[in-house]
Design a protein around this nucleic acid. Structure first.
Length: 559
RNA sequence: UGGCCCAUGGUGUAACUGGCAACACGUCUGAUUUUGGUUCAGAAGAGUCUAGGUUCGAGCCCUAGUGGGCCAACCA
């Protein structure tokens, strides 16, 4: 890798380790989700971080499910997580489960008891919590702290065999009830849970806690760098303590390092809050295109590349952050600009009659599929004397800044002819029913005539009425009106729901849209990028708006 | 109240062992354009939370303060 590029602080750590004796072959990372929900954009950046490091250093990255709490975990989530990571385009070295290590962890724990490093506590969780003290005052030692080793051993065995009920006993590490770090005050290592585990079934009645599991799992897998979010920083001392007890010379000693979770504006990401959106029907499900879940983003039309580029471009740090969605939107536009086929669709139609176009005539006009990609080729679009254009593209009279159709002025119909507004037909209420225009027969795009080369300010997209394909279009906008909906202490995040986050309309598209398949992505010219939703039927296609095009006119038009 | 972490343009990051603040997004000009898109050229915008200190020299080091975050689940 070039020394020119700047490294983020995690890469600096790795580089330092490499300089101080680590072998490149020693490097190994992991992404350790708990299978208790769907992955979201926050996970995506952690995935890109770990797997990105794996690609950069040519090191293996394991996918390890942190499945130590059977009350919350399900196989369904394991499958969904794997699917999402694969979709992002990453390949894990090994698929592993913390539950694979239950026996090893148990054996170590028994060893701990024998060595007086752990004991069975028979108090209630309440009592234990009360004795914990506060960050200011030291905790009190449990009356069971010095119970005989044999007794702890026996009770632990009973816990394991399911002979004791949930909550009756726990195994605690004997560390320091006066530690300034609350996590070091004799943390619970095991609790009894008579629950079905998605992988171990009913084999185990005791389940190891996160702290006891995570570092040891890293150690078993010989992970070199265990990157996690900042809230785990206080856990590091315990992570290291547990590691010290089992570490043997010559092995890789995993290193936990923490980075700031990256927050995206105008959304929420906590599982509880996302669940509320689903339960209260604000969205249609976990993969609603407005959801920040990976499945939601996928359905919205985001590409894996755009998400990866986004994650790379925002970097990592250790400070609180709120990344504006515009960064994400930039990345999807940039990707789709190169890839998406251009097509025409009219969302808010008004009829245009070309009065001097021969009655009943139709023709097929040639159109470029993507000006950014020569390989994309051309297609044909049917043209006739009766068209739809966007209602916003016409004004009876307008100032010089309005580069669109007005009476007496010419505009180009994309890939077709130059037309001139002649008159407007209205109903009794003054609503525009149709606009009469004349066209310049010599001005056909690509015909090479002098008239076809004429420069007119303004080009409109259109669809021939007779050939128009009715489609359903779902116009999505950000789900929340506030950049940090859950950042207000006094207010519930639900108060910031954007009432206009979804606008479903019927629109008209050019006939070629009928050939598209689910998840195909196109640019509706002058409007935005759209993708075919799985709700599409043979009778009617459904398009989700991924993101509108940048629109420098919108700002002026508002004035 | 104790401990720990953090603090650089509107946003996110960068600045290798101290050498006069960079990149991306966003914003604004202009050019090009059969997408008010794209592309291209350019501009504005921070003197690095504050106050001291060390140093020839500090965003980088030290001290204190201020502000924000984290920590007292048999969750991860």
């Amino acid at each position: 890798m070039s020394k020119e590029e700047s490294l983020n602080f995690l890469e600096h750590i790795i580089e330092q380790d490499l300089d101080s004796g680590y072998n490149n072959n020693d490097l190994r990372f992991r992404f350790p989700p708990e299978p208790n929900g769907y992955l979201h954009i926050g996970h995506a950046s952690a995935i890109c971080l770990n797997f990105g490091l794996g690609e950069k250093y040519n090191a293996p990255v394991n996918l390890r499910f942190d499945d130590t709490n059977p009350t919350k975990e399900e196989q369904e989530f394991v499958d969904a997580i794997k699917r999402d990571i694969e979709w992002l385009g990453y390949v894990w070295a090994e698929e592993l489960y913390a539950s694979d290590y239950f026996q090893q962890l148990y054996d170590w724990a028994v060893e701990f008891i024998r060595e007086g490093k752990a004991y069975v506590d028979s108090q209630t969780s309440r009592e234990i919590a009360d004795q914990k003290g506060t960050p200011n005052e030291p905790g009190k030692e449990s009356p069971f702290r010095n119970r005989p080793v044999e007794e702890s051993l026996e009770l632990f065995e009973k816990m394991k065999n399911g002979e004791v009920g949930e909550g009756e006993h726990v195994l605690r590490a004997k560390i320091d009830m006066a530690s300034g770090n609350m996590l070091m005050r004799d943390p619970v290592m095991y609790r009894v849970l008579h629950k079905h585990h998605h992988r171990t079934g009913t084999d185990w009645k005791i389940f190891p806690m996160y702290d006891w599991t995570h570092g040891e799992s890293d150690y078993i897998e010989q992970v070199s760098h265990s990157f996690c979010t900042l809230e785990f920083l206080p856990h590091r001392e315990l992570y290291d303590w547990f590691l010290d007890q089992v570490y043997s010379e010559g092995k890789m000693r995993p290193k936990q390092r923490e980075f700031a979770r990256r927050n995206l504006s105008h959304t929420v990401v906590s599982k509880r809050k996302l669940a509320r959106l689903v339960e209260e029907g604000v969205v249609s499900g976990w993969d609603d295109p407005r959801m920040p879940t990976i499945s939601g983003l996928r359905r919205r039309g985001y590409t894996p590349e755009s998400i990866r580029n986004f994650a790379d471009s925002i970097g990592v740090g250790k400070r609180e952050n709120l990344i504006d969605v515009s960064h994400l939107e930039y990345n999807i536009r940039e990707d789709l600009n190169k890839k998406a086929k251009r097509v025409m669709a009219v969302l808010n139609p008004v009829k245009v009659l070309i009065t001097n176009y021969p009655e009943g005539q139709e023709e097929l006009l040639e159109a470029e599929n993507n000006p950014e990609d020569e390989q994309a080729g051309n297609r044909t679009i049917p043209f006739s004397g009766e068209l739809y254009i966007e209602r916003e593209d016409f004004k009876e009279e307008a100032n010089r800044k309005f580069f669109r159709l007005t009476l007496g002025k010419e505009v180009r119909l994309k890939n077709a002819y130059i037309i001139k507004g002649e008159k407007v037909v209205k109903d009794n209420e003054g609503n525009i029913l149709e606009i009469h225009c004349t066209y310049d027969p010599d001005s056909r795009s690509g015909s090479g005539t002098e008239a076809s080369m004429r420069k007119v300010k303004g080009t409109l997209h259109w669809v021939s009425v007779k050939h128009a394909l009715p489609i359903e279009v779902r116009l999505y906008d950000r789900l929340f009106t506030d950049p940090a909906p859950d950042g207000h202490k006094e207010k519930d995040f639900m108060e910031f729901i954007n009432p206009d986050s979804l606008n479903t309309i019927t629109a008209f598209g050019e006939p070629s849209l009928d050939d598209l398949e689910v998840e195909d992505k196109v640019q509706f010219q002058r409007l935005g990028y759209f993708t075919v939703d799985r709700d599409s039927t043979d009778a009617r296609k459904v398009f989700n708006r991924t993101v509108p095009l940048r629109d420098s006119w919108a700002k002026l038009a508002d004035l």
